[in-house]
Design a binder for these strands. Sequence first.
DNA 1: CAAAATCGATTACAGTTGTAAACTAATGTT
DNA 2: AACATTAGTTTACAACTGTAATCGATTTTG
Lengths: 157, 157
Amino acid sequence: MRGEIMNTEVDSKITDSEWEVMRVVWAQDNVTSKEIRKVLEQKKNWKPATTKTFIGRLVKKGMLHTETEGNKYVYSTNITENEFIKSTLNETFDNICNKDVGKTIVDLISKSTLSFQDIDRLEKVLEMKKKDAVEEVPCTCVPGQCNCKDDNCSSKH
Amino acid sequence: MRGEIMNTEVDSKITDSEWEVMRVVWAQDNVTSKEIRKVLEQKKNWKPATTKTFIGRLVKKGMLHTETEGNKYVYSTNITENEFIKSTLNETFDNICNKDVGKTIVDLISKSTLSFQDIDRLEKVLEMKKKDAVEEVPCTCVPGQCNCKDDNCSSKH
DNA sequence: CAAAATCGATTACAGTTGTAAACTAATGTT
DNA sequence: AACATTAGTTTACAACTGTAATCGATTTTG
């Protein structure tokens, strides 16, 4: 943490395909192109050239760093998978009315497989949340993109 | 529900811009092009022609239906916003190791504004979840995209 | 009824994404 | 040293996206 600003927001947009590449890098920390290609040839049936394209684009975007080793590169990243996931989900939730976030998370939990420990942690964070829970979540949607403001909208949420 | 098959999965991929249009339709159920354009000119500064393009593409994709009224259309959809959101989030979670889902939801809750009622509902669904909670969530990632299988991976999650 | 406004459809066009072959330089092999 | 392999770079190209102007038909307005 040598004095850099710790920016939580991952600004780079990446595509689904690029995400596949990133997952290999996150899982292995320092990887060669060959290792990435092997994994994704398995999973996605990508030709080596295809994977190379995505790697190249990620380097150009600054998501991957390269360290020369002989004639090849070893790839790595300084963006953590967790930060990236949070950032991606944030963007999705930007498209959802704040009032609906709770229900959306309920749905999410419903269809997920969770461990006892997960449930424990979730209960704990909910306990914390009670401290700053509100009576009614304020809607910040623009008028016309949500019917919260029509009346008090309680029937809808 | 006249005998159609109720398919929960929303297959159509839509873009961010198209999502903006859909939100207007969801908020108002039956809208004219003019109403959609008005909202998005406000929010996104889109020229009328731009919004028209997105509406047209959504119709072509089958996400929007049209009903003629005079020389214009009234747009509507039979995909619910909630189903769409769930479907979108599912796709995102497909990129996340099952073992990490719990922690991801914890993060999501942490940064959301929730009402007391939301928290109530969340606690309730967690209570249900305890019935089918597991000791350890099985990872289904392909090898190389997650280090769960290296050893027992407990230190990572 | 003529003119203006409006609607949906068509066309435009640059940038992004998915998919991959070809090229060039370096490395490993015989 | 010659040849084969491999790595990264360049080029290709169609489909999808964002952004919008234009066009042709129709409706509203004066």
